[in-house]
């Protein structure tokens, strides 16, 4: 009986001490972790907008409170207008697909007013190291193959990886990951095309003196 109480007490004490250690370290590092994540997102954003002339970004409201579901697996998380000379020159979309090999892949896509892709970057993924992670710009030039593509170029049936008869490379040892990315980008292009003249997608400029029609 005595040893039972003693054992329980030891176990409880160990749990409490370790819980305290973990939670205090979490509190201590949370600001730094958020900073790292933000820094990473900013680095990716800078790379993405490196060759695009722009003055600033403006947040655009989404249709609903939360993410917009484009398909059951692909969703639009946020939209930002890319403003050049007080006019919207492109739209920056943050999208997510759950069709990756290991769940969620988050992408940033820049589409200009003509519906042409100006750049794509991955900001979060959980793909297999060494195989599926070639979707990162730091590991492979693959993600650059979307630049200057649009809904009409290539044609709809070419918007697939080569194994499925399309024009985009898959990776040796990993087809599911690039397939998910290609599908998500095609879906967002289709979506952007359908909403190209939607007021919120390419909104009116904010100052009345520079009103231009899209």
């Amino acid at each position: 009986m005595n040893s039972l109480i003693k054992c329980s007490a030891t176990l409880a004490l160990a749990t409490l001490v370790l819980l305290f250690a973990v939670s205090s370290v979490e509190k201590a590092t949370s600001a730094r972790i958020a900073q790292s994540r933000q820094h990473h997102k900013q680095t990716v954003l800078n790379q993405l907008l490196e060759h695009i002339k722009y003055d600033h970004l403006v947040n655009l409201p989404l249709w609903s409170e939360k993410a917009v579901n484009i398909t059951p697996t692909i969703s639009l998380l946020s939209m930002q207008a890319v403003i050049t000379y007080q006019q919207q020159s492109a739209v920056l979309l943050e999208i997510a697909t759950t069709e990756g090999y290991n769940g969620l892949i988050k992408l940033l896509v820049v589409i200009d007013a003509n519906g042409v892709i100006k750049g794509v970057r991955v900001i979060e993924h959980h793909e297999t190291p060494g195989l599926g992670d070639k979707i990162e710009a730091s590991r492979s030039v693959w993600i650059g193959s979307f630049v200057n593509q649009s809904l009409q170029n290539p044609s709809s049936n070419q918007w697939q990886v080569k194994r499925d008869g399309g024009q985009f490379d898959q990776f040796t040892g990993a087809t599911i990951t690039p397939r998910a990315v290609v599908k998500a980008i095609h879906a967002i292009l289709t979506f952007a095309h359908a909403h190209a003249h939607h007021q919120q997608f390419f909104p009116q400029p904010q100052t009345p003196s520079t009103v231009t029609t899209q």
Binding site: V25, E26, T29, R32, I33, S36, R37, H39, H40, E124, H125, P129, D133, S138
Partner: peptide
């Protein structure tokens, strides 16, 4: 926690 805070790129990959 340490890796996420100080080696974020490495954390992302493994």
């Amino acid at each position: 926690f340490y890796l996420r805070a100080y080696r974020y790129e490495f954390y992302l990959s493994v």
